[in-house]
């Protein structure tokens, strides 16, 4: 009886928190309009207000999820949902050989999506992810700063960053950590930007696709690091499980009823 009452109170409290501020571990992102990297017509996209995890999901957090949802464990997962590299760092279904505070990697898109849904969340869209990722410590859009690009690129050139622990890179403008510096991250619509793999050919595509030629143009020099992210997304499939690829969750902002 007591526990029951406690739960009810807890639920009420939680809703209260959602109504007035942000759930634990998530950060409010104020939406806006911006021009992402892809698209040749400088298409402005709009990002609505949303919530985003402050940190990537860790090995420990993912293990907790696996314990509660055995169908996503290494032995049980459907081949349709993950390739053979799925959870490679695990020595058996519930034991991993890695730091608990390092980002969870070797996770397929299906598993990442399921994880977020179990938390009442979802994966961020590319537009949302890129929007948060273009901030540095002090500005919301730092893409024109050489220092911003240089830092990201030096990460791309540093080996074994997936072994690092979360929360060690500086907090960005929004209060989000590790957008750059540890691992790539899944996006809900990661495969919506179509690239053929032959970047030079994509130049001629009429539609609003990833445009390789823009990499050469001066406007995009400011963010050529982002090209590598788009190229990476273009090379993967939803069942791929990759050493340098993790994820974090996002959530729509719930309005007070």
């Amino acid at each position: 009886m007591f526990t029951h009452t406690f739960r009810v109170i807890l639920v009420i409290l939680t809703f209260q928190t959602v109504g007035f501020s942000q759930p634990e571990g998530m950060v409010n992102i104020k939406g806006s309009r911006y021009i992402p990297l892809y698209g040749r017509d400088s298409t402005v996209v709009e990002v609505k207000d949303f919530l985003m995890d402050a940190y990537p999901v860790t090995n420990q957090e993912f293990l907790d999820f696996l314990k509660k949802n055995p169908k996503w464990q290494k032995a049980n997962i459907l081949k349709l949902f993950a390739d053979d590299n799925y959870l490679r760092q695990y020595t058996n279904d519930t034991v991993f050989n890695a730091s608990p505070n390092s980002p969870a990697t070797y996770v397929s898109w299906f598993a990442a999506k399921a994880y977020c849904e179990c938390q009442g969340k979802r994966l961020p869209t590319i537009d949302e992810w890129e929007y948060v990722a273009m901030a540095d410590e002090v500005t919301a859009d730092a893409r024109i700063k050489p220092s911003y690009n240089q830092k990201i690129l030096s990460w791309y050139e540093t080996p074994r960053t997936d072994k690092k622990e979360i929360g060690k890179t500086p907090k960005n403008y929004w209060g989000v950590y590790d957008m750059h510096g540890l691992v790539w991250e899944w996006a809900l619509d990661f495969n919506s930007v179509l690239i053929s793999g032959e970047s030079r050919k994509d130049v001629d595509k009429d539609s609003n696709l990833f445009c390789g030629s823009a990499a050469i143009g001066a406007t995009d020099l400011m963010n050529y690091a982002a090209f590598m992210r788009y190229a990476f997304r273009g090379s993967i499939k939803a069942r791929f499980s990759i050493k340098n690829l993790g994820f974090r969750c996002a959530k729509d902002v719930e309005t007070i009823p």
Partner: peptide, 29 residues
């Protein structure tokens, strides 16, 4: 698998689109 980036290969000895680049775009691992 330790690599960060996707890659492909264009061989100038190939007769075909992209010299093979089109069919060799490969993710890490």
């Amino acid at each position: 698998p330790d690599n960060k980036l996707p890659h492909n290969i264009d061989l100038h000895a190939v007769t075909g689109p992209g010299g093979g680049a089109e069919s060799s775009f490969v993710a890490p691992g």
